[in-house]
Amino acid sequence: MSDKRPSKNQRRDAAREKAKQFRVDQKKKERRNKVLLQGGVGLAAIGIVVVVALVIMNSIRPAVPGPANMASDGILLGEGMTAVTTSALQPEATPVASKPDATGTVANIRVYVDYLCPFCGDFETTNGEQIAKWVESGAATVEIHPIAILTGRSAGSQYSLRAANAAACVANYSPDDFYAFNSAMFVDQPEENTVGRSDADLQELVKNSGVSTSLSQIDTCITDETYKSWVIAATDRATGGPIANSPLEAIAQTPTVLVDGKQYQGSLGDPKEFAAFVLQSVGESYSTSTPTPSATPAG
């Protein structure tokens, strides 16, 4: 019986051939992996470029006109809480300062607010009602400037910016309801370093504050952040100054309250002190006139 087992040499040659084939297969595998890796890196790079492009496109949207009725960067309310209507401020245009009442009987009150600012809430809670009574009766005008200087203090939600945008939406579509909305924004006011109200919350607040016209347009305006670029520009103008109809160089804090161009620096929690300041400011501006606002807030 013959021995059919491979000889030693045959086994050695077979092992060499097998090793050779293994090296060939290994090199093919390495080349294939390299191609796949390069392709994957390329696709990842393309994906990153696409994402970055989308972020840039979404963050650098074309500037749009500001809201109607805020050509001064604020909304001016007069007797009966009726808004003074103005055309929308075009992008890059210079705001048109409101003309102060020149009769000598009307106090011109101007308030710069950030809806996340707790001190703004204190001022509104203390003085909002008496200011409303003065304006309703024609004893005063009030011009409210929503700005967003606390945008970075809302846990990444940009609440100040979104809230000021919501205010601009109301000013544009339902200006005579603006004061009621402005007051409602300080009821259960969100605290700093919280996310604040969502867009849905702001939409609900618009409705609950008594705004009854153009609700669908306002809802869309809030969701789309229509006036975001205007809020940023208006905030830059306020903090960069100068401040029209006032010796104030710039807005350094909120609330900043001006009466006939003079800055109120008294207590934010004492309505009598603010009423006395209004009376004094009007008296100084019009020394031959008798100002109408009472120094004692109505109960």
Rank of each mutant, 00 (worst) to 15 (best):
D219Q: 07
N208Y: 08
R110D: 05
T235S: 03
N165M: 01
Y173Q: 04
R162W: 01
M185R: 06
A164E: 06
Q253E: 12
K262M: 10
A276C: 04
S214Y: 04
D13M: 15
N9F: 05
S59N: 15
D13G: 10
E204G: 07
P255V: 07
V170S: 04
T82I: 12
L248Q: 06
D101A: 14
G261H: 08
D101R: 14
K228E: 15
K133G: 04
M57P: 01
N127C: 12
K4H: 13
V106M: 13
A68L: 09
K29W: 05
I131K: 10
V106S: 07
N69C: 05
T226E: 02
K133C: 00
K27L: 06
A238W: 00
C117I: 11
D224N: 15
D260N: 15
M185G: 00
T220E: 11
E30H: 05
A88P: 01
V231P: 03
Y112Q: 01
P146N: 09
I56T: 09
T296F: 15
E124F: 07
R162I: 08
Q158I: 02
P255S: 02
N193T: 07
V231Y: 02
F119P: 03
L248V: 08
V231H: 06
N58G: 09
S209L: 04
N58R: 13
N182C: 03
S7K: 08
P293V: 12
Q217C: 00
V64N: 01
D114T: 04
Q203E: 14
A164G: 09
A71I: 06
K4I: 09
A139F: 05
V106R: 10
N58S: 13
T141P: 00
D199Y: 02
A180S: 14
E129P: 05
T94R: 12
K272R: 14
T103D: 11
T220G: 01
W230H: 14
I46P: 15
G78C: 05
S289P: 01
F119H: 13
D260W: 12
V170F: 03
A180K: 11
I147Y: 03
Q130C: 04
S229F: 10
S212C: 08
A107N: 04
S98V: 14
T86E: 08
F181N: 00
S267I: 13
V84C: 03
E124W: 02
T82M: 12
A167T: 10
C169T: 03
T94P: 11
Y286S: 13
K27T: 07
L161D: 03
K133N: 05
G42H: 09
V111K: 00
E249C: 00
R237F: 10
N193E: 13
A233N: 11
V64M: 04
L258D: 02
D224Y: 07
I131T: 06
W230V: 06
V113Y: 09
S281H: 10
Q265T: 14
V24I: 15
Q217L: 02
Y112A: 02
L215R: 11
P255M: 02
V49S: 09
S154F: 01
G156K: 05
R197A: 11
A166K: 05
